[in-house]
Computed example of a mutant assay.
Amino acid sequence: MDYRFNAGSAPLLVSMPHVGTDIPDDIAAGMAPCAQARADTDWHLEQLYGFAQELGASTLAARWSRYVIDLNRPPENTNLYPGQDTTGLCPVDTFAREPLYQPGRAPDAAEVQRRLAAYWQPYHDCLRTELSRLLARHGRVVLWEAHSIASVVPRFFEGKLPDLNFGTADGASCDGTLTELVTNLARAGERFTVAVNGRFKGGHITRRYGNPAGGVHAIQLEMCQSTYMNESFPFDYRPDLAAQVQPVLRDMLQAAAGWARP
């Protein structure tokens, strides 16, 4: 199976497109040693969001590493942040600009198309099908795009990233009342720093599937990994840190599901 999926009953789908760590043997054979660390994975999000199914949420988590193909990039590989540096649909380097492939082994156009069909499309087919099911059942659904990233990545932003970064494509993918609801919960207690439509405005999934007029409200949360894990290899999960942020995540998801119910 190309993903891990659980169908829930609430009008809420939690998508985790960057948690995958598997790399097919034929692709791994052409990669550089640095690829084995999978450093740019959204580590441990399935564990961090382990409570989601208790809330009745559907969950969808990638199997394949973003080094194989990035499920949160458009199939035509357009830059989601024009003028800013990003990695592509089939990344050729890491966030630290280390080459991912041995010389002459980077994927060509035909290989990119093969990976789109084999690894990208199944995830999106499942995502689309589940959104349609939940929409038919409830009339309104929240798509929660769960992501995480190292708190300091000079390639993409200066200094340290805020702890919790919400993206709604500058308001186009999600009703403003829902955005306000969840971000107010994120700010409660003043434990975590929060940004809305800052450096991260939502990737392809948020922008493609978010359609408030059609009843689908998509919001991306890009979390600093320092809020729940060690950011250096071997990227250990930190239950002591996670215990501080999980109640906030639970409150936000519970509120989002409640907001979407008729």
Rank of each mutant, 00 (worst) to 15 (best):
F5N: 00
F5W: 06
N6S: 11
G8Q: 03
V19C: 07
G20P: 12
D22H: 15
D22Y: 15
P24N: 05
D25T: 15
D25G: 10
D25I: 15
D26V: 14
M31S: 05
M31C: 13
P33M: 10
Q36L: 15
R38H: 04
L45F: 07
L45T: 12
Y49E: 01
Q53T: 15
Q53I: 11
Q53R: 07
E54I: 00
T59Q: 04
T59A: 11
T59L: 04
A62S: 13
W64H: 09
Y67P: 03
V68N: 05
D70L: 01
P75N: 03
N77Y: 02
Y81T: 12
Q84I: 03
C90T: 12
C90F: 11
V92Q: 12
V92H: 05
T94V: 07
P99R: 03
P99L: 04
A106P: 05
P107R: 07
A110T: 03
A110V: 07
A117D: 13
D125E: 13
L131H: 08
R133A: 10
L134G: 11
L135D: 09
A136S: 14
R137T: 15
H138Q: 15
H138S: 14
E145A: 13
S148V: 08
A150S: 11
V153A: 03
V153C: 12
F156D: 09
G159W: 11
P162N: 12
F166Y: 14
D175S: 11
T179M: 07
T183H: 06
L185N: 01
L185A: 02
L185F: 08
E190Q: 14
T193G: 09
V196T: 13
G198F: 03
G198L: 08
R208I: 00
G210E: 12
N211R: 09
G214N: 03
V216F: 03
A218T: 06
I219A: 02
I219Y: 01
E222S: 06
E222A: 09
Q225W: 00
Q225P: 00
Y228E: 14
N230L: 06
S232L: 13
P234W: 02
D236H: 11
D236V: 04
D236W: 01
Y237C: 09
Y237I: 09
D240G: 01
L241C: 14
A243V: 05
P247W: 01
L249A: 08
R250M: 08
A255F: 08
A256S: 13
A256C: 06
W259Y: 15
R261I: 00
